[in-house]
C-alpha cells in the first residue's frame, strides 16, 4: 500500500480549511466577498498589507469575471486555507467567452498583488465556466518597490 503525501507544507497553525461562498454574479455583492476575504486572511495571521492585497486581488479577479458572467447566475468563491497560504478560486458562468484578458489594467493589478495568478478559460470539459485562481502566501517578498 502506498501512501500519498501532500506536498503543500502545513503551517504551524495546522489550518486546512476550505470555505465556499456563493453569491449572485453582481457587483453589488463584491463588498461582501471583500469582507469575507479579509476575515479569512486574518485567520491565517496575514499582515494588514497582505490582507489589503488579497482584498484588492479578489476584487479585481471578480471584476474581470463579472464582465463576462451571464446575468442572473452565481459567482462562486472557494477559499483554500493552509497554514501559510490562501488560494482563492473565483468562478462564473459564461457563454462562449474567451479567456480573461491579460492585458487588462485589472489583471496587471491582480498579478502585482497576488503571488500567483492563473486564468482558467472555458475548456473542453467546462465550456461555460470561467475562473481565476490566485494564491498568496504569508510573509512572501513583495514584488513591488519598498515604501517611497
Amino acid at each position: 500500500m502506498t501512501e500519498e503525501t501532500e506536498t503543500r507544507a502545513e503551517g504551524v497553525a495546522g489550518i486546512r480549511d476550505v470555505v465556499s461562498i456563493r453569491l449572485p454574479a453582481a457587483s453589488a455583492y463584491l463588498s461582501v466577498l471583500r469582507t469575507a476575504t479579509a476575515g479569512l486572511a486574518a485567520r491565517l495571521d496575514f499582515t494588514l498589507d497582505e490582507i489589503e492585497d488579497l482584498r484588492i486581488a479578489v476584487d479585481e479577479a471578480c471584476a474581470m469575471l463579472l464582465s463576462e458572467a451571464v446575468p442572473g447566475t452565481d459567482l462562486t468563491a472557494e477559499f483554500e486555507l493552509t497554514g501559510q497560504e490562501m488560494q482563492v478560486r473565483v468562478e462564473v458562468a459564461t457563454v462562449g467567452s474567451s479567456a480573461p484578458k491579460r492585458d487588462d489594467f485589472a489583471w496587471m493589478v491582480l498579478t502585482a498583488l497576488a503571488d500567483d495568478v492563473d486564468a482558467v478559460a472555458p475548456s473542453q470539459g467546462f465550456p461555460d465556466r470561467m475562473a481565476i485562481v490566485l494564491r498568496k502566501r504569508r510573509g512572501a517578498a513583495q514584488r513591488t518597490a519598498g515604501p517611497a
Partner: peptide, 9 residues
C-alpha cells in the same frame, strides 16, 4: 475605505 483598479481608472 476601499479603492481598486477601477477607482484609479
Amino acid at each position: 475605505t476601499f479603492c481598486g483598479a477601477g477607482g484609479i481608472g
